[in-house]
Design a protein around this nucleic acid. Structure first.
Lengths: 215, 215
DNA sequence: GTCTATAAACAGATAGAC
DNA sequence: GTCTATCTGTTTATAGAC
């Protein structure tokens, strides 16, 4: 945000997020990043101070962008009844399926985060409070409203992880799932089947946990 | 299985599986592997023909060992009734939780496979038919028996992926889950909570899918 | 801010003595 | 089968001209 050609920095960031997400940090060389960004290798040292610091800058960039998406004015009015909350939760899961499974390459931001979720570190420390925790919190609130459980209950938090984790798993295990299902790829038809399965799990979990039908 | 000191090859395999599982293929150098195995760097070329072929040899090794574990005489008699099948499925999930979450480092074999599951390639091609597909098939058979659905039905296969995927997710997302739950680690108490949650999901899914209570 | 040129460390692989 | 020594290419990082 100073002078000259300020979009080289930005181009490097976008290129790094993309390549780190696709192949991983270690498998991506600074040369590839510079080439992808149509920039010079030494621009990385100049703008960020090295490959490691570029990774952190990617985390900042991703966290900031995801937080902005997550905080945008709600598409739906705030749910008030358990039924509305259940519907909002289904919508949330559908959106996640759309975001993670629909696009062939999946949004670069998501893929970058998915890689870093698997390993504790500074990147996770950065993305967690700004995006992951608030997003999970919102899902927990919906779940609590839908079932009558306490929003801070560990059981609710784990249940939400289970549901969201299913989507993440189908993304990560895509190759395995395709082989086992006899699919060539995740096409629209396949994604609908997966979404139906996960939404079904969500519905029965909500139904059997709801106050009244409690065990 | 020839002459000399046949356990250098074995030591290299075990070291490579461990390090590839911990840090990933790209982040692990042949020098580290040799050091971990108390062997010489050039032993890798001699025994396997290079780093890439060592990776494949790891896949063979892992597939063979996992297949042996999976094929060992059933602890339980073959389930005959839906109730027995449901119990056997719960046991299967418990075992997976135990295998993936209990040990701090998780069995090296599992961690190696988890890394490779995320990316299509020769390793997956090797481990899939020898272990992953049969294991998934067995779970599908149990599910079908427990619910009355067809064992080859896509819905059953996806449902089984959903359940097993939850366990995988809690392993991969361990750091994230800990942060969000306010845990320091996956201790016995925490693992029990996770297992309860997943088993609960399994039970309600089986119950609501069973013939008779079908929607 | 961007470039070329190059340094310094490291990667994986191999030749050849033992 | 195992070792030392070394080759070759690539990595990240930096110095210095423009």
């Amino acid at each position: 945000m100073a002078a000259g050609k300020p979009d080289t920095r930005q181009a490097l960031l976008k290129a790094a997020v993309k390549l780190f997400g696709e192949a991983g940090f270690d498998a991506t060389s600074t040369r590839e990043i510079a080439r992808e960004a149509n920039a010079n290798i030494s621009a990385i040292s100049y703008h960020f101070g090295g490959k490691d610091k570029l990774r952190l800058a990617c985390a900042e960039y991703v966290a900031e962008r995801l937080a902005r998406v997550a905080a945008r004015p709600q598409d739906q009015p705030q749910p008030r009844t358990p039924q509305q909350a259940a519907i909002a939760l289904e919508k949330l899961v559908s959106n996640l399926v759309e975001a993670l499974l629909s696009q062939p390459g999946a949004p670069e931001l998501a893929q970058f985060v998915l890689r870093e979720i698997a390993r504790p570190g500074e990147v996770l420390d950065l993305v967690f409070p700004r995006f992951l925790a608030p997003a999970h919190q919102r899902a927990c609130d919906l779940w609590a409203l839908a079932t009558g459980e306490g929003p801070e209950s560990p059981a609710v938090r784990l249940a939400v992880f289970s549901i969201l984790g299913q989507v993440v798993y189908f993304r990560l295990g895509q190759a395995l799932v395709c082989k086992r299902m006899g699919w060539n790829e995740f096409g629209p038809e396949q994604i609908r089947a997966i979404e139906d399965s996960i939404l079904g799990n969500l519905r029965v979990a909500l139904a059997t946990t709801s106050k009244g039908s409690e065990q």
